[in-house]
């Protein structure tokens, strides 16, 4: 299935676009999308376990399944400096 993923922050700069289509196998999860994103943009490997990912505007864990038509966003991790 094809999932359209909207990217934010520096991911948008890295990808040079704000929407990316990923081809994910049926029954796939957010983790499959992250893996595909990191494979395409290896600079993001450092964020792999900490990316903020939303599905249909709700931030969810990386093992959450995705389905056709889901609106997924990838955002760099929460920043913590003060």
């Amino acid at each position: 299935m094809k999932i359209s993923v909207r990217v934010f922050g520096r991911y948008k700069d890295i990808a040079a676009i704000d929407h990316i289509i990923f081809d994910i196998k049926e029954g796939g999860t957010i983790q499959d999308i992250i893996d595909a994103f990191v494979k395409r943009y290896p600079f993001t490997e450092i964020d792999k376990n900490r990316m903020m990912v939303s599905k249909n505007k709700i931030y969810i864990s990386h093992d959450t399944p995705v389905q056709n038509g889901d609106e997924v966003t990838l955002c760099p991790p929460v920043v913590s400096g003060g």
């Binding site: 376990n49 709700i58 864990s61 929460v78 400096g81």
Partner: peptide, 21 residues
């Protein structure tokens, strides 16, 4: 509204070292 845990559930509580700013 969403709380901090809603957006940061995958973020480990441990902090990295010195944060560049």
């Amino acid at each position: 509204t969403p709380c901090f845990q809603c957006i940061a559930q995958t973020i480990p509580a441990s902090s990295p070292g010195e944060i560049p700013v």
